[in-house]
């Protein structure tokens, strides 16, 4: 299979996923009517679908660790962020969930989502078993949401103060960078499934030859993705915190 064929034919249109998204859209309308911020929800669903049906998903399914990492980052950082942004200001968490809004839990969820699913056994299992894969996807979305809640909750009062938010994001960035560094420099495969892929799509020769992605280089790219671009996402959030801080209360001129 050539690269062009691969990019055009491996979209995995899943009826269930599309149904899920449609239901989410309908549910959103019923819950928030016109108070919601639809563009953000659209973004969340688009990224969600892209992560799970595009060729990235086909590659993540046993071929490339780096593609898995792209999927992972999209699901844990991008989709939940858009989801939280789409909530109207009036939104409040139902009672039982408010316990999850402690900053420590949010931090552990965000960092844990990175570390936990890269324990070799779990990483392997999520790639080989579709049931565990579903659990993984769900857990990533939930943990990502718990993480971002501290920063992107609908109302200002529910969020961390800018200074605390910066510390929260910076430490999370560091914790994930450490994992990225370990993945980048590990001489052994963290997720051994990707070492000897089962070539269901007949694309392996292109990947190894034309794209030049040996399994070592593949894992290195995966680690670097977690290390560098992911930190840029956190950095963007840090800058947003600074912007929020500097655009804080402006008193009337007459007070001066």
């Amino acid at each position: 299979m050539t690269t062009y064929e691969f990019l055009t034919t491996t979209w995995r249109w899943s009826f269930l996923l599309l149904l899920f998204c449609a239901l989410a859209l309908v549910g959103y309308f019923l819950a928030f009517r016109r108070r919601g911020r639809l563009a953000y929800l659209g973004g969340a669903l688009a990224v969600f679908l892209f992560a799970l049906i595009s060729p990235v998903s086909a590659l993540a399914d046993g071929y490339l660790f780096s593609a898995h990492m792209v999927q992972h980052i999209l699901l844990v950082l991008i989709v939940p962020a858009f989801l939280l942004l789409s909530l109207p200001r009036s939104f409040s968490l139902p009672r039982p969930f408010t316990a999850l809004t402690h900053p420590l839990i949010g931090w552990m969820a965000g960092v844990g989502a990175m570390w936990l699913w890269h324990v070799p056994a779990l990483c392997n299992a999520a790639t080989t078993s579709s049931a565990i894969s579903v659990i993984q996807t769900t857990s990533l979305l939930l943990m990502g949401s718990a993480f971002w809640w501290q920063v992107l909750a609908p109302r200002d009062a529910q969020r961390l103060s800018p200074a605390a938010g910066i510390a929260y994001l910076f430490t999370a960035c560091t914790a994930c960078s450490v994992l990225g560094i370990i993945l980048t420099f590990a001489p052994v495969s963290i997720c051994p499934v990707y070492q000897q892929p089962v070539d269901r799509l007949g694309i392996l020769s292109s990947i190894r030859g034309q794209w030049g992605l040996t399994s070592e280089r593949d894992q290195q790219i995966g680690g670097l993705l977690m290390w560098v671009p992911m930190c840029l996402i956190y950095l963007t959030a840090i800058l947003a915190q600074l912007a929020r801080w500097h655009s804080g209360p402006h008193p009337e001129k007459s007070n001066a």
């Binding site: 290390w227 800058l239 600074l242 500097h246």
Partner: peptide, 14 residues
Amino acid sequence: VAASSVAIAVLSMG
């Protein structure tokens, strides 16, 4: 100026 200092500080580590 203030925020770009933070950005430089974070980026410089990586």
